[in-house]
């Protein structure tokens, strides 16, 4: 089933046949949040996971660093350096968090410790993962802050003394100070104003270029996706329904859901309101066959019975839709 092409370059991280089920074997109803996800991210590549709330995008992001609740069932593989992250013991995952893979979130204030200065945040992180002396640690931190445009005299300030955009810059500096190979950005610019959002997106693109970091960008905002992604993966109801380069997804979308999603974006050149009819799927009892079939304007009989096979248009552009099966 998994036929992610081998284009020579080895992926940085590789997700294979990932299934995630919440409330597994406890009293509540099982929620099938992600089903059979396959995804490779190459070095220095920015890949965006797009979908509505409940599509499974954040769940996938959290599974990589093992940040899901205890009674969650994860099956499949998330491979980094030949290790399956899903099977690593907690101690080993701790080693990886913040060092090989780091994550930034929507709300930076909620992630920074209000009782610690910026300096203390850096020192704590560097002590955990390196044996730098204090001097080297400070030097490293100031370099990282410089990269994100925070002046060095703010080093001893507390989080509340910064504005929202500055806090997000500090989070990015913290996430990048150890030169991780992968940065997971979960709605990292969603709560910021457009101008600041645009600044942060530029910043993310610059630093990844500089350090060859890969980004897994998780968002529902298609504008943000178009601004920074190399490749885009579209999720619906816990399934990947289409993936391709940013150009392919925005200019040659194939899956009816992708088309609907792109048409419903309200941009400066929008003249008429368009939307996708219906409501998001119930993940306790996901729709049979293709999860999008109850909302799909081009639904066919077999869509209700069977999830479609992959159709590839070229090496990068693929969709899972019966319309394109030969």
């Amino acid at each position: 089933m998994n036929t992610e092409q081998e284009t020579g370059e080895k992926p940085n991280i590789s997700i294979k046949n990932l299934d995630i089920t919440y409330n597994y074997e406890n009293d509540s109803e099982e929620v099938k949040a992600a089903r059979d996800i396959n995804l490779d991210i190459k070095n220095g590549e920015i890949v965006s996971l797009v979908g509505e709330s409940g599509s499974g995008k954040s769940t996938i992001g959290s599974s990589i660093l093992n940040l899901l609740p205890k009674d969650t069932l994860t099956r499949g593989k998330i491979q980094l350096d030949g290790k399956n992250l899903l099977e690593l013991p907690e101690n080993d995952i701790r080693e990886i968090r913040g060092k090989d893979i780091s994550k930034i979130f929507q709300d930076p204030m909620g992630r920074l410790n209000p009782l610690m200065t910026v300096e203390q945040h850096f020192i704590e992180l560097l002590n955990e993962h390196t044996d730098f002396g204090k001097e080297k640690a400070i030097e490293k931190s100031i370099d990282a802050l410089n990269d994100v445009g925070i002046p060095p005299n703010r080093f001893e300030d507390y989080p509340h003394e910064f504005s929202g955009g500055m806090r997000q810059r500090i989070m990015i500096a913290l996430a990048l100070v150890l030169n991780p190979r992968i940065l997971i950005a979960d709605e990292a610019t969603t709560s910021l104003d457009v101008v600041v959002q645009s600044q942060i997106l530029n910043l993310l693109r610059d630093v990844t270029e500089k350090y060859n970091t890969s980004i897994l960008n998780i968002t529902h905002n298609l504008g943000v996706v178009a601004e920074i992604s190399d490749r885009v993966v579209v999720l619906y109801g816990g399934k990947v329904v289409e993936k391709g380069s940013a150009e392919e997804i925005f200019h040659k979308p194939k899956h009816p859901y992708t088309k609907g999603l792109i048409n419903s974006v309200i941009g400066l050149d929008t003249e008429e309101l368009e939307w996708v009819e219906g409501t998001p799927p119930d993940l306790v009892n996901p729709p049979s066959g293709c999860p999008f079939h109850p909302r799909c304007p081009q639904v066919m009989e077999k869509c209700k019975k069977q999830f479609p096979e992959q159709t590839g248009f070229n090496d990068s552009h693929k969709t899972w839709c019966h319309l394109y099966e030969s």
């Binding site: 457009v194 101008v195 959002q197 645009s198 997106l201 905002n221 298609l222 504008g223 943000v224 996706v225 178009a226 601004e227 920074i228 992604s229 940013a246 150009e247 925005f250 200019h251 792109i262 974006v265 941009g267 400066l268």
Partner: peptide, 13 residues
């Protein structure tokens, strides 16, 4: 403000 609005089009990047 107008310039900063993200465009849902990678060609305008």
């Amino acid at each position: 403000l107008m310039r900063a609005i993200p465009r849902a089009d990678p060609r305008e990047r």
